[in-house]
Design a protein around this nucleic acid. Structure first.
Length: 824
RNA sequence: GCCCGGGUGGCGGAAUUGGCAGACGCGGAGGACUCAAAAUCCUCUGGCCGCAAGGCCGUGCGGGUUCAAGUCCCGCCCCGGGCACCA
């Protein structure tokens, strides 16, 4: 073997061998304990960027580590290959998304191989493969049958210039189209939805036992947004306050029924279906104008807190009655009341809600306090706890008691009931796009909306399409695609031209990996039973909410539908979210033109140095600036390891034989400590300190080798072998090459080394002696020293005697064998 | 505004339960090898005072608990991220 480390000459060879020998191929009847490691499958945008390298290095380390620990590790890879960028490129350059996407898949696959990532390549799935489309559609139809899919009107971003629907990211912050510059309108269109809200409670409850970052769980809980309160009706009145028996009460939802005596007005969403019915003739012009102005507002404007509340609401002229005290109160519309939350109408209690307070001030409404604020309270609305006042039968009650009493009263009077409400909304899955999975529905003039029969799946995307410069989906004008036969009457039908959100594809790919060969179902239940849930899922925190929520929903629904096993209720047992890479404080991205390409580093310092740099630079979960990477330091370190490990190398040529010295035994103990340390640190994702451990140990060996006595050949041999074993998951090529040269065989199939507990401690340790908490001396002591002996040694120390200057310690704290503290 | 993180040398960071602050790397200084340089190897490298031995200070700020605080408690400041009219 060459004395000089040359990554180029070894890395390709080992990548080939892992592939040829199927080192990381695992069958579904593998006898080893199953362990499923999954890094989120990437969108194929071309060769890997640094973010990919970081993500897939983390995952690969775990795959190789668990394999050495003796597990049969499932390590699949796939590609999230549908999506807007490929379609935009097609519109711009004319390159077909399929051509572009597949070239990118190849380029990214190459990159992944070049960084040494180990996958079972037989299991690759690509979202756009007909085989995958088929099962994505099949699942859609299963959900459709089960009532988990429905169609409804929903607002979309419509660009009048392009005559097409825009994704949120295509709308600029000023509300114009990024392509044409036209002002984007909000327009209602028929859209497909997944009924994820049916699982709201279960999605919330299921979070508890998951071994996920607490931060992600909190974000999901917040997103689901469960609240408890009451729903009840406000009877409709005329302007004199007389009950109008011809109208149903207006339903409102509140989390503060205890404050109901303080309701002094009510507010409806401008989209509320009863606006027309409840608006008086005198107010109808003003109300219509207001509704129109809200429609024209971009979502961003509407959600911002700016603007005067007097302009953001309008009176309907209608009155409603507060059922708690019988008082007649005005009904308004306001843009901040959302049709999508609760009942789309609220009761307003300005005394206890700041926004209601502000609105009341702007519209001259009464304000009544119903909770006693503390004596020193000098704010406006009081939102804290306190005793109920001005509240009839609730007076004097604490908040919780008053809530319960108010709801009990509503229920006994038959006016309303206790209600649980969620912020979570159903999942709008329609995309008016070409490059996505077609929705398998046809529309027959006679029979209406009909699912495509299972036997006719997949509904594939036609390739012979024209991309309009406007961005309109070519499916809407493709006669061959549009024409379909009605499965019921056999008559002519028109195909649905919307495609699915790409989050649909990524909501079940991890199940497909268990059995990508299955052609009778999306996956076989036995394979899923074996591998699922994913033991370790790895990805960016940017997917903390949507992707993870959707994947959890799919898993639960598929389980309930009997497609996946009953016991699989959660897809990802453990989740790790790694930080992103920035350059000069800014996120690296193609559009910013600040990418650092991994290729140059792979060509020069090699994959192992790049991997090590990613592991070493920072704790894996934190964001990192590219400037902080120490590629050269890592490369230098690998050269040091090479000189240490290369058989017959000049560095290690002078090793002794014969009896072992104390220093040899110390090195041996250090070797066991290394194993212990790296094992623990791999298990807790402390990869940066694991790398520090390699370096520290290597420094120890160098000093020993260059000491006067030199190293003992046997001790050195096992020390270096152990170093290679624990480094193998991090720097797989170099370790494999040196191992083969030294021992023959394949390091990645070697068992993980075990530390001998008896050798984890040195015989002698340094004990610090403090006086009043300050270190005044250090003494070498036996590591099994007792408390009395430790104290005696401390008191006998010359430096300590000097320091005490005759004082007798009033207190002595002894923590053998590391510390004695004398208090004087 | 609310909810999460975080703040430690010139820089990235390390520090099981409260027990030697600054591991490891980068950067810097010095030395060895060399005709010389690169590469390599070794040593030093928080600040201040001191020739030295050594001393004092030091983990965002201010208090507190403790024999002992980066770590625990109270009150602030700053930075990053998420959510944001959610009734």
């Amino acid at each position: 073997m060459p004395e000089h480390y040359d990554p180029q000459s070894i890395e390709k060879r080992w990548q080939q061998r892992w592939s040829d020998e199927g080192t990381y191929v695992v069958d579904n009847d593998d006898p080893r304990p199953p362990f499923y490691v999954l890094s989120m499958y990437p969108y194929p945008s071309g060769p890997a960027h640094m973010g990919h390298v970081r993500n897939y290095t983390m995952g690969d380390l775990l795959v190789r580590y668990r394999t050495m620990r003796g597990d049969g590790v499932l390590s699949p890879i796939g590609f999230d290959s549908f999506g807007l960028p490929a379609e935009n490129a097609a519109i711009k350059t004319g390159t077909h998304p399929r051509v572009n996407t597949e070239a990118n898949v190849e380029a990214l696959s190459d990159s992944l191989r070049r960084i040494g990532a180990a996958y079972d390549w037989r299991r690759v799935v690509r979202s756009h493969d007909p085989d995958y489309i088929r099962w994505t559609q099949w699942i859609f139809l299963k959900f459709y049958e089960a009532g988990l899919v429905y169609r409804n009107e929903a607002p979309v971003n419509w660009c009048p210039g392009c005559k097409t629907v825009l994704a949120n990211e295509q709308v600029l912050p000023d509300g114009t189209c990024e392509r044409s510059g036209d002002l984007v309108e909000r327009r209602n269109m028929e859209q497909w939805f997944y009924r994820i809200t049916a699982y709201a409670q279960e999605l919330l409850d299921g979070l508890e036992p998951l071994d996920w970052p607490e931060k992600v769980k909190i974000m999901q809980r917040h997103w689901i947004g469960r609240s408890e309160g009451a729903q009840f009706g406000l009877p409709i009145a005329d302007s004199e306050g007389n009950l109008r028996s011809d109208s149903e009460p207006l339903m409102v939802y509140t989390t503060r029924p205890d404050t109901s005596f303080g309701i002094t007005f009510a507010v409806m969403s401008p989209e509320h279906p009863r606006v027309g019915e409840l608006t008086t003739d005198e107010q109808s012009d003003a109300v219509e104008a207001f509704q129109k102005s809200v429609m024209d507002l971009s979502e961003i404007d509407r959600l911002s807190n700016a603007g005067n509340l007097d302009k953001r609401g309008v009176a309907t002229g209608c009155y409603v009655i507060n059922p708690f005290n019988g008082k007649s109160i005005p009904l308004f519309l306001a843009d901040y009341v959302l049709m999508t939350y609760g009942t789309g109408a609220i009761m307003a209690v300005p005394g206890e809600d700041q926004r209601d307070w502000d609105f009341a001030m702007a519209h001259d409404c009464a304000i009544v306090r119903t909770v006693q604020p503390p004596a020193d309270f000098d704010g406006e609305a009081y939102t804290g706890e306190g005793l109920a006042i001005n509240s009839g039968f609730l007076d004097g009650m604490e908040m919780l008691q008053a809530k319960a009493a108010a709801i009990d009263w509503l229920e006994s009077e038959g006016l309303g009931q206790r209600t649980v409400n969620f912020r979570l909304r159903d999942w709008l899955l329609s995309r008016q796009r070409y490059w996505g999975c077609p929705i398998p529905i046809v529309y027959c003039d006679v029979c209406g909306e009909k699912p495509v029969p299972e036997a006719d799946l997949p509904v594939d995307l036609p390739d012979d399409v024209e991309f309009m410069p406007t961005g309109q989906s070519p499916l809407t004008t493709h006669e061959g695609f549009l024409a379909a036969t009605c499965p019921d009457c056999g008559g002519l039908a028109r195909r649905e031209t919307d495609t699915m959100d790409t989050f649909v594809d990524s909501s079940w790919y991890f199940l497909r990996f268990a059995d990508p060969w299955c052609d009778t179902a999306p996956f076989s239940a036995t394979a899923v039973e074996r591998w699922m849930p994913v033991d370790q899922y790895i990805g960016g925190v940017e997917h903390a909410i949507l992707h993870l929520m959707y994947a959890r929903f799919f898993t639960k629904a598929l389980s309930d539908l009997g497609v996946a096993p009953k016991g699989i209720r959660e897809p990802f047992r453990r989740l790790f979210t790694q930080g992103m890479i920035r350059l000069g404080g800014a996120k690296m991205s193609k559009s910013k033109g600040n990418l650092v390409a991994p290729e140059e580093i792979l060509d020069f310092q090699g994959a192992d140095a790049l991997r090590l740099a990613h592991l070493q630079v920072k704790p894996p979960q934190e964001d990192v600036d590219w400037e902080d990477f120490g590629i050269d330091g890592c490369s230098k370190f690998l050269h040091r390891v090479w000189r240490l490990g290369v058989p017959g190398g000049s560095l290690t040529a002078g090793a002794r034989s014969g009896p072992l010295t104390a220093i040899d035994e110390e090195v041996d103990r250090a070797t066991h400590r290394l194993v212990n340390r790296v094992t623990r640190e791999y298990d807790r994702w402390s990869y940066n300190t694991a790398v520090a451990g390699f370096m520290e140990f290597t420094n120890t060996l160098y000093r020993w080798i260059q000491s006067d006595d030199g190293p003992h050949a046997d001790t050195l041999n096992s020390a270096v072998n152990t170093l290679l074993l624990v480094m193998a998951p991090a720097a797989p090529h170099l370790c494999a090459e040196l191992w083969e040269g030294r021992n023959g065989g394949h390091i990645h199939t070697e068992p993980w080394p075990e530390a001998d507990p008896a050798k984890l401690q040195d015989d002698m340790v340094t004990m610090v002696v403090q006086v009043n908490g300050k270190v005044r001396d250090r003494i070498e002591v036996q590591s099994d020293i007792g408390a009395d002996a430790a104290e005696a040694m401390a008191l006998a120390s010359e430096r300590i005697i000097e320091f005490l200057a005759g004082d007798i310690p009033v207190k002595v704290i002894v923590r053998p064998p590391t510390l004695v503290n004398l208090v004087i």
